[in-house]
Amino acid sequence: MAKEVTTGSVLVEDFDRVLSGWLKVQASENVKRTDLVSAKESEKQSRDLLAALADVAPEAATADGFDLSDAQWAPVREALEEIAENRTERGVSAAEMGWFIASLKQPFFEILHEELGETSAELMREIWSATRIVDQVALYAIETLVQKREAIIERQRGEMTEVSAPVVKIWDRIVTVPLIGTLDSFRAQTVMENLLDAIVQWEAEIAIIDITGVSTVDTLVAQHLLKTASAVRLMGSECVICGISPKIAQTVVNLGVDLPNITTRVDLQSGLAYAFRRIGVAAGER
């Protein structure tokens, strides 16, 4: 053979063959997920990634200290991140993502075998070199996918917390916070912080906590409510807890929880009526 055949050179010289081979394997290995990612898009992503690899690999792949985090691999990482972001949004699993990249080995090996079939030593060397690149890329892809997914979860958690404790000023000197769902320690803390800040901001004399939407009240939730009420009182404001349903009243008493010095009302209407009386606003009876 006149020229030396390496993983890098295969990428450059037989670019189209590698690409078409890869796309074929993607289809046969069922990692294409045509239901989530269109064939055209898959092809474009594969081409972009391969192009980035072909740009960098010839020089970089042969270096002994192979490190995907090196600056020269930046284009490959960018291409991967783009693919990962796209596939995260579509709901592709980490395993599928990994296999999607790893299936690139097949066309590589095929071509390498054709070119270097007679010299097994060189073949082995190049197979190792190709495996090293593809595996590193696949691992990086999985890691990126997981990171993107975690970022999404984190963002959603933030959004949930934001919408879960909206403190509203419903009247001059009255603020209210409607609670919905379950009240865990983290949310209880957020509710308390938001409520106390709102009391300062609007100089509220009455803080109404509406627990109509709280599904269950156990000792922990009762304790959170108690703490919040105490903090509200320390700030110089009064706390009213509304939405005590018959079921909640029963549980609270059966649990032996004491809610001392806390004004409780059956629904928001009567809570509001109480608040109006306290601040001296006349509310007409309906």
Partner: peptide
Amino acid sequence: MRPAVAMTLV
């Protein structure tokens, strides 16, 4: 009383 102080005391 500041909110942070109230929370700490509680």
